[in-house]
């Protein structure tokens, strides 16, 4: 790690100096600092800056930015009304990491692209304009949707996939005050500016995440990975599905491991909505989801895997 100044913060404030980085759980930031991928000049320790509670909010819940992943997944209200969120969090990392990782930090988790994490390779996200070694390299874990020729990295997290399917909102505080960003719009596609993972401005800090009123229906999180635990997703699916009179009355689907952001596709959901569930319908939904999918060699399999993961989730959600 490069030297830095360290300062403890008593509350969450907008960032006012370039080179400052906020640290809370530190599980991602310190990892990347050790790899020299991140080199902040100053660390502002917000781990005791409040915002560590889950409160009732407009019929839903507000999760403070510093609520740990472990606390969030253990919260009885989350477990009862938003089981998808609890399941997604529990599918990620390890108990030790979840005890440190925070809600805000997890949203800002950076990609696991091995080239991004290696300063001796070319990466447009780490070093804009340097090129992308993943395009023709080892890219088994990489994105198949919404990629660009500049970057095929994925957003690696699980929690945000659930939050996306649950229509949650990110609350951020900047010099100009508070603004609300739907989670689905929080992360961005790489385009020709992959250095930016999300729409957070330099001065902004996440203060919380709000969940709308609970919705009825089955909530499923399915994560497919190379080993049964403690591994990043090859593909994951977060689903909220409500059946009425043998038809899919309402469906929300978000996918992890496929793109630079948790992927939500309105057309896929539209195809399913109002229809009686069947393997043919699920196939049709997958066709829509994956119409523009593009493999880069190592990750070609994700197209088939996403299709089957979707079928598995829809089958499970619509079973008697």
């Amino acid at each position: 790690m490069r030297p830095f100044d360290y300062r403890r913060m008593a509350d969450l404030q907008p960032v006012d100096q370039p080179g400052d980085r906020l640290i809370a759980g530190g599980t991602n930031l310190l990892d990347l600092m050790k790899l020299d991928v991140e080199a902040p000049r100053r660390l502002l320790d917000i781990s005791r800056a409040g915002q560590d509670r889950i409160t009732e909010h407009e019929g839903g819940l507000r999760i403070g930015a510093l609520v740990t992943n472990a606390d969030c997944a253990a919260d009885p209200r989350i477990r009862a009304d938003y089981p998808l969120l609890a399941k997604a969090i529990l599918a990620g990392a390890s108990p030790q990491l979840r005890n440190k990782a925070t809600t805000g930090g997890n949203l800002c988790q950076r990609t696991r692209c091995q080239y991004f994490m290696a300063t001796d390779t070319r990466c447009n996200k780490r070093q804009p304009g340097s090129g992308c070694d993943a395009l023709q390299g080892v890219n088994r874990n990489h994105a198949i949707l919404g990629t660009s020729e500049a970057c095929i990295a994925t957003y690696p997290g699980d929690m945000a996939v659930a939050l996306t399917a649950l229509d949650a909102t990110v609350e951020v505080l900047g010099q100009g005050g508070t603004r609300l960003i739907p989670v689905a719009e929080f992360h961005r596609l790489p385009g020709d500016d992959p250095a930016r993972d999300n729409v957070l401005r330099d001065d902004e800090v996440i203060t919380g995440v709000t969940l709308p009123e609970p919705v009825a229906g089955r909530q499923i999180y399915r994560k497919i990975r190379d080993r049964s635990s403690y591994a990043f997703a090859l593909v994951s699916v977060g689903a909220v599905i409500k059946l009425r009179e043998d038809r899919i009355a309402r469906v929300a689907l978000a996918f992890g491991g496929l793109a630079h952001k948790p992927w939500r596709d309105p057309q896929t959901e539209a195809i399913l909505t109002g229809q009686p569930p069947s393997p043919a319908l699920f196939d049709q939904a997958a066709d829509a989801l994956l119409a523009k999918a593009k493999g880069r060699g190592g990750n070609d399999f994700k197209i088939a895997l996403a299709r089957r993961a979707l079928a598995a989730v829809l089958t499970e959600a619509t079973e008697e």
Partner: peptide, 24 residues
């Protein structure tokens, strides 16, 4: 898993080289 263009090992840590965990 090596990058065959450079010989660089891309699965060079315990997050990418998957030894079995308890649940396996």
């Amino acid at each position: 898993e090596f990058d065959h263009r450079t010989g660089r090992l891309m699965t060079h840590d315990l997050a990418e080289y998957h030894v079995p965990v308890h649940r396996d």
